[in-house]
């Protein structure tokens, strides 16, 4: 257990140190860190699908499903509990993922990617147009919930969200790693390399992919419900295709070879956006663009690939 998971345990300790120390240097960073962790959870789902060689350009729909599950609850039922919100977000993502998944797992590659995009844009336009229920482009505000009955001041609550996001991120990280090492997770990679053989072993590639798809939708829904609470709002932008693109961007930036890539990518992405947009209001996207070009040209396995290459090099040198 220790040997197999030493990378994840090490990363957890580094993360723990980061969320403990960084807010001391600058309290304004607390919300940013929570956002990084929440987005990392969504990107974990993208990485699951990438194991099968499939890129979804529509995963923002599950992110939005999680966020709107929280927003609708607050609007029609009343302010709920944070844990309830997380369960709702995950379930909303999972149910929508199952429905959409039953269609899209029949397709591969560009058709898979574009079909996902199409479904997500249907959701986006529904959220925009059904003004009576959704407030259209203005979105729905999300009031600060309690956590297992405890209420907090806004300041306290930002720390609560950070620690909660961290706990969820660690749980999701270990669960995804476990899944990817299990027989079903290994079969996802077999879809990428040889689907014919998989069928000739008596395995339904579609079912294998559907499990991966629903898993990734649950993660996106969970991340979406977290972000809605962190940002205190859910808007149709959450489902827009640029949001889906952002998740894929972060996955490639971080590296798809390891689940940790999701969080490495999310950290770099959000820090660059945060500081670059403060310094160069109109140029932050350009800076992110240059970062991605540099990654693809110099380190195609992403940030996590750089770390792996170095540690492999040290091991062979030792």
């Amino acid at each position: 257990m220790w040997r197999r998971h030493r990378v994840l345990i090490g990363a957890t300790l580094v993360g723990l140190a980061a969320i403990g120390v960084l807010p001391m240097a600058s309290p304004s960073i607390v919300t940013l860190l929570a956002l990084i962790l929440a987005k990392g959870v969504v990107v974990l789902g993208i990485i699951v699908l990438l194991q099968a060689g499939q890129v979804s350009f529509g995963h923002a729909m599950f992110f939005a499903a999680g966020a709107y599950a929280v927003a609708f609850y607050g609007r029609y039922v009343g302010v709920g509990d944070m844990l309830l919100y997380l369960v709702f977000g995950a379930v909303a993502g999972g149910v929508l993922g199952l429905i959409v998944g039953l269609f899209v797992v029949r397709y591969r590659e560009i058709f898979f990617g574009m079909l996902n995009l199409a479904f997500s844009m249907v959701l986006w336009s529904l959220l925009e147009k059904m003004f009576h229920y959704t407030n259209g482009a203005d979105g729905i505000r999300v009031a600060r919930p309690a956590l297992v009955g405890l209420t907090f001041t806004p300041d306290q609550f930002s720390y609560v969200l950070l620690y909660l996001s961290f706990a969820i991120a660690v749980a999701a990280l270990f669960a995804v790693q476990r899944y990817l090492e299990s027989p079903l997770g290994s079969m996802l990679r077999a879809i990428k390399s040889n689907e014919t053989r998989l069928e000739y072993l008596g395995i339904s590639a579609r079912r294998v992919l559907l499990v991966g798809y629903v898993t990734s939708a649950v993660l996106a829904g969970l991340g979406g419900s977290l972000v809605a609470v962190i940002q205190q709002i859910a808007t149709p932008e959450f489902a827009y295709w640029t949001k889906s693109g952002e998740f894929v961007f972060i996955a490639i930036l971080g590296g798809t070879g390891h689940a940790l890539g999701a969080f490495a990518g999310a950290a770099v992405f959000e820090f660059v956006r945060f500081y670059a947009s403060a310094q160069l209001a109109d140029a932050w996207q350009m800076i992110l663009g240059f970062v991605l070009i540099a990654i693809i040209l110099l380190a195609p396995a992403g940030l996590i690939g750089i770390v792996r290459r170095r540690s492999a090099g040290e091991r062979s040198a030792a």
Partner: peptide, 14 residues
């Protein structure tokens, strides 16, 4: 027809 990215034992275990 092999799973090129898996090790041989992993392929058999699948």
């Amino acid at each position: 027809q092999l799973f090129l990215e898996h090790t041989v034992i992993e392929s058999l275990l699948i």
